[in-house]
Amino acid sequence: MTRGLVALAIVALFAVPWLVTNTFFMHLAIMVLMWTALGAAWNLLGGFAGQVSFGHAAFLGVGAYATMIFHLKLGLAPWYGLVLGGVIGALVSLPIGFICFRLRGPYFSLATLAVAEIIRIIAINWETLTDGPVGMLITTLPELRVLGQPVDWESKTPFYVMIATIVVAVIGATWAITRLRFGAYLLAIREDPDSAEAVGIDTVRTNVTALALSAFFTALTGGFYAIYFRYIDPDAVFSIALSVEMVFIAVVGGLATAAGPLIGAVFLVTLAEVFRERFQVWHLIFYGLFMMLTIRYLPEGIWGRIGLLLGRRG
């Protein structure tokens, strides 16, 4: 039955653009899905392995910049750049992982924050590569034909399909991991790194693998960010606030759950987009407030609590 429900959900997900015509709602749906992907990618490392990264904007930025640079400087179509950007994000995460995973708990979190800041400062100053603080802009997206039909970049539909595909991939990967030995190993590391080593788990390699996966999906979504907004600058895509928002989506939705980030994103992003119309900062005030309320009264998150109420594990 679960399998049927999941299939139905995926069909419904891809049917949305053909049912909804309102541009605001389409934009809202795209934002919800983008933050779902980011929250779910963060959750792979932060939720399952319990390694709270405050620096995931680094990977989003690397993905976004890779996509832009490949397109603007090398003429590569951005949808290829997006995939390449994901791979580059994963590669960048490897040295970061080997450095930061020598630290535990809050020290790891502080180290990721420092690494992200270092990358942001480099992005601002390495002007030959990134054009510096002025940022990078795609004026028009190149022509693309799918099944012989030209894609209409003025419509929201192609972007929706892109991000929905990424979301299905991240949540699918998360779900698969919960079934594998790898997923169990991540939880073991979260619970007690010493004991994890004692049962033969290579904690550094397992953590680095989780980080690389997480970074891959974050950078992939960063590539989407670049294509969708067509403009990026270092302070927009490398900001600490962006990293923190990813954390919040996952925590409010439910740490170490496959569907939690979707719930967190529906909840927080809808709030954000509704408030953004009136006043920019209200949504962040509420993000902060909900974060505090969640940690205090609902540490397992919304989806985690639903799971507990239904008496299911994970």
């Binding site: 709270v52 962040l284 974060m291 940690i295 205090r296």
Partner: peptide, 28 residues
Amino acid sequence: RKVVLGGELNTLLYTAGLSLFIANLALF
């Protein structure tokens, strides 16, 4: 006071929320 009992990562996340709250309230 109560949050601290939940462990250092919980406190870290909680104060991150507090930070966002104070900064953006000030911005408002």
